[in-house]
Computed example of a mutant assay.
Amino acid sequence: MSAPSPDRTAPSLLRRLVTAAATALAALAATLAVPAPAHAAGGAFYGVYASVYGTRDYHGYVPSSYRPGTPMPLLVALHGCTENDIGFDLLSGWSRVAEQRGFIVVFPDQSNLVNPATCWNWYLETNQHRGWGEPAIIAGITNRIRSQYTVDSRRVYTTGVSAGGVMTNIMAVAYPDIFAATSVMAGCEYDCDVLQLQSAQESGRKALAEMGSRARPVPAIVFQGTADLVVPPSTAYRIAGQWAVVDGIDATADTVQTGQVPGGRSYTHLTYRDTAGTALIEQYMIDGAGHAYPGGCACSLYGDPSGPDASNLSWDFFLAHPKP
């Protein structure tokens, strides 16, 4: 995971081949693409995005409050392993929240042809950098929706759970010019070190290097179950530590509060602020929760309705953090 960025190591011949292939496939991509119609009222949409890096389906939802010409926020939501875009929509309730709170949401779908478990391939070097692999595909889907609807460019956000949580963290690092803020659920820090031999500070430095001239403070909200057997709970602190380096703030939480979902789980809420007192990082450690979506639908194997409502909490956080 610590190999140099492809931008620094890819041979010039490979770059020429990729460029030539991209040019040759541009027309094919346009032919394969099934764009979503520009709804004037609420409804679901579906599409296919194709590029030199592959083809992915996606679906999304436009709320009934949408009016062409009036900018509306956009959320890009990434599912976890053994899920798909439709299942993640049911699990998270994001389309329902989009209708209630007035934003567009799109769900890119991983192909089981490139990963039999439908995990995003975050662990591959080419999928950790801007303009390459799956990040390029997800960014392409995002920009397609931005071109088809009137999207508020200062309020484009990304969220994901598990493998989707790792990838959403990568997207916020690789494309800080697109995504205003991110929500990571049971994910991992940038340049994810599953053995935790690399410090969160080193991860943050690598994130800054990836951002390059686009580097800026990116607000992040993190959710993690304390009984997660897939993702070590300490990973949440590593994600917060990574973003603390990027955001230029202390990696020690300024406030630590406890909370309780009525009839459900207790949790610890940590907040990390800048010198002006702005909460740039929030972290929820959910007592006794496993590898599940906090507040997610009981209709899904991965839903934990007894946890805090991660979808609405994320949207509250997003609303407080438009892109400067």
Rank of each mutant, 00 (worst) to 15 (best):
Ser5Tyr: 11
Arg8Met: 11
Arg8Lys: 15
Thr9Met: 07
Thr9Lys: 09
Ala10Asn: 09
Ser12Lys: 11
Ser12Cys: 08
Leu13Arg: 15
Leu14Trp: 06
Val18Pro: 03
Ala20Ile: 09
Ala22Met: 05
Leu28Trp: 12
Leu28Met: 09
Ala30Ile: 02
Val34Arg: 14
Ala36Glu: 15
Pro37Leu: 09
Ala40Gln: 12
Gly43Arg: 11
Ala44Ile: 03
Ala44Leu: 07
Gly47Ala: 07
Tyr49Ile: 04
Tyr49Cys: 03
Gly54Pro: 12
Thr55Phe: 01
Thr55Asp: 04
Arg56Trp: 00
Arg56Glu: 11
Tyr58Ser: 04
Gly60Lys: 05
Tyr61Val: 03
Pro63Gly: 07
Ser64Pro: 02
Ser65Thr: 14
Ser65Glu: 01
Arg67Asn: 10
Pro68Trp: 07
Pro73Phe: 04
Val76Trp: 01
His79Arg: 04
Asn84Val: 00
Ile86Asn: 05
Asp89Asn: 13
Leu91Tyr: 02
Leu91Val: 06
Ser92Gly: 15
Val97Tyr: 03
Glu99Cys: 06
Glu99His: 04
Phe103Trp: 08
Ile104Thr: 07
Ile104Gln: 07
Val105Arg: 04
Pro108Thr: 04
Asp109Met: 03
Ala117Gln: 13
Ala117Leu: 15
Thr118Tyr: 00
Cys119Gly: 05
Asn121His: 08
Trp122Ala: 09
Tyr123Pro: 01
Leu124Cys: 00
Asn127Met: 04
Arg130Leu: 07
Gly133Arg: 09
Glu134Trp: 01
Ile137Met: 13
Ala139Gln: 13
Asn143Met: 07
Asn143Val: 02
Gln148Glu: 15
Gln148Ile: 04
Val151Ile: 15
Ser153Val: 03
Val156Phe: 07
Ala163Ile: 09
Gly165Asn: 06
Val166Asn: 00
Met167Asp: 01
Ile170Leu: 10
Ile170Cys: 02
Ala172Cys: 11
Ala172Glu: 08
Val173Glu: 02
Tyr175Met: 01
Val184Cys: 01
Ala186Gly: 01
Tyr190Lys: 06
Cys192Gly: 12
Cys192Thr: 10
Val194Phe: 15
Ser199Asp: 08
Ala200Lys: 02
Gln201Asp: 12
Arg205Trp: 04
Gly212Leu: 11
Ser213Lys: 13
Arg214Cys: 10
Arg216Cys: 09
Pro217Arg: 14
Thr226Ala: 07
Val231Ser: 04
Thr235Ile: 08
Ile239Gly: 07
Trp243His: 14
Trp243Leu: 11
Ala244His: 09
Asp247Ala: 12
Asp250Ala: 11
Thr258Pro: 02
Val261Ser: 04
Pro262Tyr: 01
Pro262Val: 02
Thr268Lys: 10
His269Gln: 06
His269Lys: 14
Leu270Trp: 03
Tyr272Glu: 03
Tyr272Ser: 06
Tyr272Cys: 04
Gly277Pro: 08
Thr278Lys: 14
Glu282Cys: 02
Met285Ala: 10
Gly288Phe: 03
Cys297Asp: 00
Cys297Phe: 05
Ser300Trp: 07
Asp304Cys: 08
Asp304Val: 12
Gly307Tyr: 05
Ala310Val: 05
Ser314Leu: 09
Trp315Phe: 13
Asp316Leu: 14
Asp316Gln: 12
Phe318Val: 04
Lys323Met: 12
